[in-house]
Design a protein around this nucleic acid. Structure first.
Lengths: 210, 210
DNA sequence: AGTGTTCTTGGCCCTTGGGTCAATTTTCCG
DNA sequence: CGGAAAATTGACCCAAGGGCCAAGAACACT
């Protein structure tokens, strides 16, 4: 790869990272090219698809913060508090960074690294949920799939309110957390939980991958 | 208005009602015209905008069923049961009829009748919630705005799962209902409820009216 | 039936965004 | 420095949808 191409790729990665964080992963490629100061043809030359570009920058965008959050959640003495922390913190990350919202929502299933991070989030959720359930802190019929679907939905809500009421999503999170307590009346759920595959399908549709 | 124009308008209303129920209020106008057997130019002639067309058919599409649901909810002896019935039933209507989902979500704020129905739903929600709160059945900090926002979010979820897992939304509804019980631990909410105006803005954005 | 009014038609333009490609420019290396 | 190889450019194409409008068809009144 020639030196100028190398430089352009770097500029594009930087511009993409910025714009992804500002406006989410579906920002027009053309704008990324513009911010990088190259023509959009060059972007297609160097990366080919949006997914490839995502894969090169998304780790730095989201993985670290998500991992940290999960780790910290598991370090709480009280499993319930750890769980509540995890849910709120992930939602907060989504609300403050559209790129994280899109990553957690598994938008762009064709982006391998993205989906890896998404799967990782699912695993972390499983561990945190199971720990809380073993401690008798949250209802036993709540699954990681339920939580990830909730995250997707929260991403939409948080995105919708970002510039006017940036914190309303916290109310819905509050209702959810209270609905998961073991003490709650807990009318048994009438519907089976989603499988992992079903969850990915649902998330894809929620994110609008037609 | 000439007789043929009258006939065409009727055919268009019928086609619109059908397609709105099948695919939601944002179905391409061009398809409505095609199903009605006229050119899309005619549709623009007779109605001008999508909103005008919506206004002429939406009452029949949604108002009756929503009213009935609210009325029935208020006829329960137990306020809590009435409330739970209302939430589940509205969500079910949304899940089985994309047009209802769009109406409740207040998509197309420019459509007067639509917004009237939406406001009516909000009033009904207020009455049902207040009754349940007076009976001590649900938490006092839950507002009609919270519920309408939840409905919007549910509309998105239900739409996303309609053809594969048409009932998953019931799980999230179950969590919400359990989260609203008065017995629940009820960590106080950290965020103020939305005002009515704010709610409409949020709903508009959720529905994707840019 | 004639004739003026009203409707319909379908082609055309606009916008957004993804994607392609021939011609041009830049780089690199002998 | 010169020329081959590599990269860049920006014009162009496509698709979906909304919307406009001049020409022609249908209607209705006399």
């Amino acid at each position: 790869m020639r030196a100028d191409a190398q430089r352009n790729a770097e500029k594009l990665r930087a511009a993409a990272a910025e714009l992804f964080q500002e406006r989410g992963l579906k920002v027009p490629l053309e704008e990324i090219a513009r911010r990088a100061g190259v023509s959009h043809g060059t972007l297609y030359n160097l990366f080919g698809t949006r997914e490839a570009l995502i894969d090169e920058v998304v780790t730095g965008l989201a993985a670290d913060r998500l991992d940290e959050t999960a780790e910290h959640a598991l370090s709480f003495e009280e499993a319930r508090e750890g769980f509540a922390y995890y849910v709120e913190k992930v939602c907060e990350l989504q609300a403050t960074d559209p790129a994280v919202a899109d990553v957690v929502s598994g938008r762009y299933p064709a982006a391998e690294c993205l989906m890896a991070i998404c799967a990782q989030a699912r695993d972390a959720a499983t561990r945190i949920i199971e720990r809380a359930q073993l401690a008798g802190a949250i209802r036993p019929d709540f699954t990681a799939e339920d939580l990830l679907v909730f995250f997707c939905v929260n991403a939409l809500l948080a995105g919708a309110v970002a510039d006017t009421e940036p914190d309303t999503w916290r109310r819905q999170v509050g209702f959810l957390l209270d609905g998961l307590n073991t003490e709650t009346a807990q009318a048994p759920l009438s519907v089976a939980p989603l499988t992992s595959q079903q969850m990915y399908v649902v998330m894809g549709r929620l994110a609008g991958t037609p």
